[in-house]
């Protein structure tokens, strides 16, 4: 479980982000020391249409791409709208802001500080992961999700 004392941030831009912009942003963000966890939030873009008359057909979507962050491939599953971050301390925030300013040149953005990830395991988390849950994963993914997190080598 996350320590309640770790500050959290949310970066939201005026527009939903293209994969290329997301890639540029994340590559800038990972240069900032002190980011513990990061979550890309947005509208889901399923590879197969899950319902409706076209159910089962492939759903090619230009916003669902594999991007390269650092030297890791990250497969986007959403049209990125917000980036949630958990930081070691508040001192990283000015650097995050500077990183965003260098990427969002065509439209506005804002960084908010608040609580955006779970800080306590929910009942569903307990059912899924049990008492020995991987604390790094709590609040990052839906408990029914089978996807694993991408681990980026930090620069700490």
């Amino acid at each position: 479980m996350t320590e309640a004392t770790f500050p959290q941030c949310r970066i939201s831009a005026e527009r939903l982000l293209n994969p290329e912009t997301t890639e540029r942003l994340l590559n800038k963000l990972i240069e900032v020391p002190g980011i513990r966890r990061m979550l890309l939030n947005g509208q889901r873009l399923p590879a197969i249409i899950p319902y409706g008359p076209a159910k089962g057909l492939a759903n090619p979507h230009p916003m669902r791409k594999t991007i390269k962050v650092g030297d890791q491939d990250v497969e986007l599953q959403v049209h990125v709208g917000n980036v949630l971050l958990e930081l070691e301390n508040r001192e990283s925030i000015p650097a995050l802001k500077a990183a965003c300013e260098s990427v969002f040149t065509d439209f506005t953005f804002r960084i908010q500080e608040g609580r955006y990830m779970k800080t306590e395991p929910s009942l569903v988390d307990y059912c899924k992961y049990g008492p020995d849950a991987d604390k790094e994963m709590l609040g990052l993914a839906d408990p029914s999700s089978k996807s694993k997190p991408v681990i980026l080598q930090g620069i700490k």
């Binding site: 939903l16 293209n18 409706g52 759903n59 230009p62």
Partner: peptide, 22 residues
Amino acid sequence: GCTVHGHSLRLDENGMMFDMLQ
């Protein structure tokens, strides 16, 4: 006709309304 989501979402960078089915 279906999967209509997009009305209240931010536009994408190209200025298009979000459409899950593109």
